[in-house]
């Protein structure tokens, strides 16, 4: 087992290397961050040349990648444009934990910019995942036990609707209904954007209130899907010999369902959560955009639009590490929970 884990971790190193190379090449050509440096005015030619030099954007892509990877503190850089290197570089490179500095928000390291936002995204996504899991299991087990009942059929259909629903549609509909129409009808309505009301301040109650609509939108899409997994897993387990044996032995129904069947049916679901979590984070891009949630997805969009390579690169690399990490964890979990699997 330990050997398997070490092997997986070692395998992930070239993988991350390939990912970083692909991304760096792409991000090098997504636009020119210096163009927007002038705000509402065009960037002045002399400023453009100076900034390119100071930010190292005039270097060839390979050099820029090298600096990004291992830093430039081992070499001298030219800051005043006379062609003679003046001062040693200060970047440490990703391998030493330095993701560089944002081109847009200069003065703040990329890692700090991203860390500021990750808690907000998790605050939305972790409860969402818990809701999805909780309701997914309840609905799934229920519809498995009542196979082909109307509830079961409704869940099957809804799961497809949820699976096919673009998140912006459910988000716009829920805002229109719970925020706009409720207000129009004089009912208590829910806030449609932001994380809290500045008048009241960032209190737990405020944040919870602002979380309802985004949570609902995210959960709507996935609860139905999860319940479908749970349902089929339950159906499969319920037809196994040991359940029949348990029934034959005259064990109580709830005991069979909750102790024997559910435990086994939920094993694959645990691993599903592991694989889904990183993609939930990704789904944040659209959700955070619509609900004005100050998370990582919005950060990504803001900085991508201004061609801020270091920040975009940092976000995607952190996500990639997260994906690989949860894949490894999922594999381990699966092996540990299912005695039939050996590595």
């Amino acid at each position: 087992m330990t050997r398997y884990i070490i092997r997986r971790i070692l395998q992930s190193i070239p993988l991350l290397f390939i990912i970083s190379l692909i991304l760096f090449l792409l991000l090098n050509n997504i636009g020119d961050p210096l163009t927007m440096m002038g705000g509402r005015n065009p960037t002045r030619p002399d400023d453009r040349a100076r900034l390119a030099r100071q930010l190292g954007l005039d270097k060839p892509v390979t050099t820029q990648y090298l600096y990004w990877l291992i830093g430039n503190d081992w070499t001298m850089i030219d800051v005043d444009g006379d062609g003679i290197p003046d001062i040693p570089g200060e970047r440490l490179g990703v391998l030493r934990g330095d993701f560089g500095t944002s081109i847009v928000t200069r003065g703040k390291p990329v890692s700090e910019i991203i860390w500021d936002r990750i808690p907000n995204t998790l605050l939305l996504m972790v409860p969402a995942q818990i809701f999805i899991l909780l309701f997914g299991v309840i609905v799934g087990v229920y519809s498995a036990l009542r196979q082909y009942s109307w509830v079961d059929n409704a869940v099957t259909t809804l799961s497809f609707v949820g699976f096919s629903m673009p998140i912006f549609l459910i988000a716009l509909l829920s805002i229109y209904f719970f925020s706009v129409l409720f207000q129009r009808w004089g009912l208590p309505n829910l806030p449609a954007n932001g994380m809290f009301d500045p008048r009241v301040g960032k209190t737990a109650g405020q944040v919870a209130k602002h979380m309802i609509l985004p949570l609902f939108s995210i959960a709507f899409i996935d609860i139905a899907r999860y319940s479908r997994y749970v349902r089929s897993a339950m159906l499969e387990v319920m037809s196994q010999d040991y359940i029949r044996t348990a029934k034959a032995k005259g064990l109580k129904r709830y005991y069979i369902i909750f102790i024997h069947a559910m435990r086994n049916a939920l094993l694959p679901i645990v691993t599903l959560v592991g694989l889904d979590l990183p993609f939930l984070l990704a789904g944040a891009v659209v959700t955070e955009r619509i609900f004005a949630w100050p998370g990582m997805g919005r950060l990504f969009l803001d900085h991508l639009q201004r061609a801020d390579g270091p920040v975009v690169m940092g976000i995607v690399m952190i996500l990639a590490v997260f994906v690989i990490f949860s894949q490894i964890l999922t594999d381990i979990a699966y092996a540990a929970l299912d005695p039939r699997i050996r590595y």
């Binding site: 390939i18 692909i22 891009v285 990504f300 991508l304 690989i324």
Partner: peptide, 16 residues
């Protein structure tokens, strides 16, 4: 590698 990058992020980067 491509599977590891969340699709929407990769798509947006490529769109740009």
């Amino acid at each position: 590698a491509i599977l590891t990058i969340p699709t929407l992020f990769l798509l947006l980067v490529m769109a740009k």
